[in-house]
Design a protein around this nucleic acid. Structure first.
Lengths: 355, 355
DNA sequence: GAAATTATTGCATCCGAATGCAACAAGGTA
DNA sequence: TACCTTGTTGCATTCGGATGCAATAATTTC
């Protein structure tokens, strides 16, 4: 084996500092007098290669700053290590936290997140066509809204898809969701035990499964408890301003003891409107509860009673599904329900213990 | 030219509905009796191909649902159409809006966003090594914190990088930032014209350029106006709770008329703490101002005077830089400063006109 | 010590599209 | 009619690694 000195490292001082092409496995191999296959194997855990050869290659690779080209690897392995994340509403503070945790967990196991931020209005298929062309290994859909099941099936065709907080039975889409019915019932029970009897529901986007479940769960439990549903607002969106508007409609009728908003950001808008415009005191005049437990729910001005979504667990389950046998996901879509937790705060008259 | 009937479309009912491999350009070409090059050219705008041939190919491609494999295309063109977006803090409500707009604008011109959500603590180079292997066409860094210039240069080596709201002179990194000094001075002027004389500054992360500029701009202008800097809190992070803590320290000294927080989320924490724990009325006892103009700043409970960052313009400029000659960016890093706008609200005693 | 096994390594090919180059056709000019 | 453009098309190769297969070396078995 002929020994050969290391070629000079590519220095910053070597003239053209820009756009210098990265080294390839072949070049590295030639420099070391081994085959390109060896280099490839050195970087492939479990590949058939002698320990000392691997070490020699890795060591030299580190020196000259060689890294395998991920694109080439994708092409030959037909695996991208990229997960498509479909989002439509980052304004709701619940989502950034979820997305952050999700992408970090994925990164930890070597997967990157390709963001698809879809917009209502314009052509969805066009927006999602990239999702197909990029050969992502799996798709995670965080958008509760906008996308129809069929559009989703089309966009994710051939690769595993997991919907978060959105359940679509009857397709090849897996779902991981909070137990909305449990949560809504917990809110109803809580209202009842706090003495409320005439309660109202403010919907988010009416046609979303999340909304339907929370609504049904709540309304059903209300009836079981013998409480009156004094109002029910059809929602147009999950937003602060929608919450304000809905709250005012309910306040105008003066027949409600407690309002359950489909999520926290609605509830917070509601609280503001009730206080500023309707002159209500909370919780003295009316109770308010939300759903999600976003950071603002804990702000003292709101101190919002809410049903906390198990974000960490949702992330964990989703990542496990992806990490595991994704092809199994394709064959048999799974739906998983996770339990949340009622967080009682001052907006429903619960006295907080000082920290 | 032998005419041949269309082969049957891949039906959902064709047996194995799962993981059926997508059609390739070669197959499509063979079906139509043309060369693979022709197919490639049909999908390449401006390529040398007769209009009718292109049309025939595109039409048939649409029928059998063929789409060029993006991975293969990346490999041969050495262009990925992927932009790496480096983020470290999605909890600050300013960022989700920015990220959303950014990724949508990029999508509109055919670029996808690969998210790199970096975490303090753990090994940054490891977290960013994927950024290099994935051959992204450009990198946008939205993290004001954490990353050192040298780490960034390393991670983005060989490809254009644009930092948002973070200026690093002296490197090959481009920057697009809000004119923080202008903003901080505007706040100082505003405090002055509202009658404040003893003012305080609450820092975010002390070592970030954003913080330094706001701090210097503010302190300098304060001096010019003959006002007193009654307190200056060194910040550890840009967060609601950091804002609370800082506000209480300042309130304890009872010598301050107005506080300028390095950003809105700090200011909002500050307002809450001042009201709840320090018993201050705002704006009666003390003025508060922030920076960014996040959605919560407009919530009535806070009605926070702030300096609005020109988010849309920032996004526009960044996307233009990327859309334009990126190689130019590599050769000559650019720094662009954009003007913001003072938004006067009740937290500094400005009476809002009712909407 | 010979035969059988097992561990390494390299060769050749493939993944799917892009593209330089040559071949060829259509239209124009003299 | 002969020659020259201009426009199309296909062929062959390339992008950078991954991997089946065969060749070779190392180790074990009897």
């Amino acid at each position: 084996m002929r020994k050969q000195g290391l070629p000079p490292l590519q220095g910053e001082a070597s003239g053209e500092a820009f756009s210098r092409k990265p080294i390839t496995a072949r070049e590295l191999a030639r420099m070391l007098g081994v085959s390109q296959s060896a280099v490839s194997r050195a970087f492939t855990p479990g590949a058939s290669i002698a320990a000392d050869l691997r070490e020699r290659i890795l060591k030299y690779a580190a020196e000259i700053d060689y890294q395998p080209n991920a694109i080439a690897s994708m092409l030959s392995k037909s695996r991208t290590n990229i997960i498509g994340i479909v989002v439509s509403d980052m304004q709701n503070p619940f989502y950034p936290g979820l997305i952050e945790k999700l992408s970090r967990s994925l990164q930890r196991i070597g997967l990157q997140s390709l963001l698809f931020n879809i917009t209502k209005g314009s052509n969805l298929e066009e927006q999602l066509s990239a999702l197909r062309r990029y050969n992502v290994d799996a798709v995670i859909v965080i958008s509760a809204t906008i996308l129809s099941g069929s559009t989703l099936s089309w966009a994710t065709e051939g690769r595993p898809a997991i919907l978060i907080n959105r359940v679509i039975e009857d397709t090849n889409l897996s779902c991981v969701a909070c137990n909305n019915i449990e949560g809504a019932r917990a809110i109803a029970d809580h209202f009842h035990s706090q003495g409320a009897r005439r309660v109202a529901y403010v919907a988010g986007l009416s046609h979303t499964t999340t909304n339907r479940e929370r609504q049904n769960g709540f309304v059903t439990r209300i009836a079981e408890l013998g409480m009156t549903l004094s109002a029910q607002i059809e929602g147009r969106e999950y937003s602060y301003h929608a919450g304000r508007k809905a709250a005012l409609e309910i306040a105008a009728k003066k027949s409600t003891d407690a309002i359950f908003f489909a999520n926290d950001i609605l509830a917070i808008g509601g609280i503001d409107a009730l206080r500023e415009e309707a002159g209500c005191r909370i919780p003295d005049d009316i109770y308010v509860a939300g759903f999600d437990d976003i950071p603002m729910a804990d702000w003292p001005h709101y101190s919002l009673t809410t049903f906390r979504q198990p974000v960490d667990e949702i992330v964990r389950v989703v990542v496990e599904m992806i990490e595991g046998d994704t092809s199994a996901l394709l064959r048999a879509a799974t739906t998983i329900r996770l339990s949340g937790e009622l967080i009682e705060r001052r907006s429903t008259g619960v006295v907080q213990k000082t920290q």
